[in-house]
Design a protein around this nucleic acid. Sequence first.
DNA 1: ATAGAAAATGAAAGATTTTGCAAGAAAATG
DNA 2: CATTTTCTTGCAAAATCTTTCATTTTCTAT
Lengths: 259, 259
Amino acid sequence: MQAEERQQRIEEHLQKVEFASLDELAELVDVSVSTIRRDLDALEQTGGVRRTHGGARLASPRSEEWVFTARNTHQVEEKEAIGRAAAALLASGQTVILDAGTTVYHVARHLEEKRPQVITNSLPVANLLAGSNAVEVVVTGGVVYPRLGVLMGPPAVEAFSKIHADVAVMSSSGITAEGITNSHGLLIEIQRAMLRAARKVILCMDHTKLGRRSLSPLCGIEEIDVLVTDAAAPSDQLDALRAKGLEILVAPAHLSTAP
Amino acid sequence: MQAEERQQRIEEHLQKVEFASLDELAELVDVSVSTIRRDLDALEQTGGVRRTHGGARLASPRSEEWVFTARNTHQVEEKEAIGRAAAALLASGQTVILDAGTTVYHVARHLEEKRPQVITNSLPVANLLAGSNAVEVVVTGGVVYPRLGVLMGPPAVEAFSKIHADVAVMSSSGITAEGITNSHGLLIEIQRAMLRAARKVILCMDHTKLGRRSLSPLCGIEEIDVLVTDAAAPSDQLDALRAKGLEILVAPAHLSTAP
DNA sequence: ATAGAAAATGAAAGATTTTGCAAGAAAATG
DNA sequence: CATTTTCTTGCAAAATCTTTCATTTTCTAT
């Protein structure tokens, strides 16, 4: 059997079962485990499959679950660190705009003790905080974007246009010295409204986003007050951004869980 | 089985049971309790699960948790029946307003195959339907009322004032021949806006609500097109309401629950 | 064809990660 | 406050990963 055919059969099999062990796959296509490893490396490059310890899984699981609950986000550790650090920047009782996105979701997880008033267009964030009596949550209206649980459309933009907040905690998919960019064009307008509504803007991005440029330009560096990123951020990128006058907070890598 | 698959199965199991002991989970995926502990730590990082003494529970409460807490657990059967019957009244592809409230939540559970466009001020409902690609969900803005996850306030009222829908599926806390009443004054205005926005109104109430009168009057019988209730409804109440010209649908009592 | 180069494969050695266990610390329970 | 249960931590065993190398297969040029 050809290598390519083999890899296709591996991927098809994973489409069915979502998870598979190396032995299982080795038996399926009748090669050694070593070869399976190499095949999976190749498949991982193309993106459809992700290697795990002892096997592989589908990269984009068909299961209709939130991107949020998901382990399919890679940088969980980093995002948690960023979330903690960003939450620490807030004062008690402030009015806070929370963007949609996995990184900001992790900020929301550490927000309770600040007893903030939160305004968000993220369904998962609203959901997370709705259970807490310490946090007052305001939800913008809008159409739910299925995968992400983001509220979009004119009502969302309008909601942010009508308010003023102390802080906006946001994230995006790329930042370079030239500015911030986001991959999702439909969100741009909403994020611009957030920027306008907030007195201070905290941008949260894990290190993989630094130096990346995405499709749609959002705003320039000067509109951001603080960038919070994780310890794996390459220092040349940080230097370049600092040279532009951006304040950067690097979240410590691994804090012991309990104080 | 590898770590990731195990963790996913743990999370799925928790989706079902809300809470599970370590031993239970250890047996489920056939590893030691130590490993379960580590898995739960990992899952807690992603945010879907929260560790507790002796076990774990869903962290960001699945929508049902708010709805099914404490007092309402006994009428679940009836509400399911009502939900099925009410959903059957809808045509495919209609625009549907969904009220907040436990009974209407059960209607939402049976809505997917109708592929409706849904407008709601209920966070649990939005959450439930957000995962489905078959349903387009529009959420009104508003302040989250903590316990119930209802969006309230002017934005919610305004959102319903601006739209037109084929059907409104609503519930309330009491109905007599004199009219419909609701216990929550703040919701009245929103519900009035729903009534105005919809061409047809379906009211869903379990039998305990019939003949009850609550604090705030909402509207008269004549504004309702169909009342859906369960088989335990007392016939004298039904007669009294029918005498007023109200169409009533009694949901059949007990479909077998078997999987 | 056939020798030689290039690529792919399978196996083995050492490094890394994960797992299960046990002892002491912390928390719940009555 | 004592007892029981559960949690954390450290460690050794097991499983898995990466790297390396010999062998086989495939390709290429003569």
